[in-house]
């Protein structure tokens, strides 16, 4: 606890404690906006920003906030960051804003955000919290991108809107529809269990 910066606070979020595959948190946006890689990366970037920002703020004010009001305070901090992101996206990238739709403001109730604020940022210094947010955010982005790559290539034969499987490919449409998302994450989890051994999460 003495060192100001511990690299593991950054690295653990990317794989060891990947919020999606190991902690099973924040699944809603993961499935909803993973039908195209472009949307997935947009969501990931927004998520990294909100998580890092809220983690830093929570950590910064952690000594000021009395124990019994900390949850509402964290919620306000998170909601503020989410709204700022919402408006900035609407102003600078209306296209992306439109395709993320209601899932962007719904980040407020994403369990990763409140979970990290409560479990990590409220107990650690600002720098570590920032890196924790960054790591978790990147872990989330990685997970969402993997799912989006699978769904977009199989479902549309494209990647970032560019055709990759050739003209003759008949799209496996179900992949970009809701059931595809559930199937992909189901198989990915099984794969993770298989290669990662039976780790208790």
């Amino acid at each position: 606890m003495n060192r100001i910066f511990k690299p593991e606070s950054f690295l653990k979020g990317v794989w060891q404690e990947n919020p999606i595959f190991f902690l099973m948190l924040g699944l809603c946006p993961l499935l909803a906006v993973s039908s195209s890689l472009r949307d997935a990366i947009g969501m990931g970037a927004a998520f990294i920003f909100v998580l890092t920002g809220s983690n830093m703020t929570v950590s910064f004010i952690r000594k000021l906030v009395p124990e019994h009001v900390r949850i509402p305070v964290f919620i306000i901090v998170i909601a503020t960051f989410v709204t700022v992101t919402d408006y900035s996206l609407a102003a600078f990238s209306p296209q992306l804003h439109k395709s993320l739709g209601v899932y962007l403001p719904l980040m407020v109730v994403n369990c990763i955000l409140l979970g990290r604020a409560e479990a990590f940022a409220s107990k650690n210094n600002v720098i570590n919290s920032a890196f924790d947010g960054l790591g978790m955010g990147i872990g989330f982005t990685l997970a969402i991108s993997i799912i989006a790559i699978i769904r977009e290539t199989l479902g549309q034969g494209t990647l970032m809107g560019i055709n990759v499987l050739g003209k003759d490919y008949v799209p496996f449409l179900i992949m970009i529809m809701p059931p595809g998302a559930f199937l992909v994450i189901g198989f990915l989890m099984a794969l993770k269990n298989n290669i990662g051994g039976k780790k208790k999460c």
């Binding site: 059931p179 595809g180 559930f182 189901g186 198989f187």
Partner: peptide, 10 residues
């Protein structure tokens, strides 16, 4: 969980 998701898909 994996099989739960696959069933959700179906």
């Amino acid at each position: 969980i994996p099989i739960a998701f696959i069933m959700t898909g179906l």
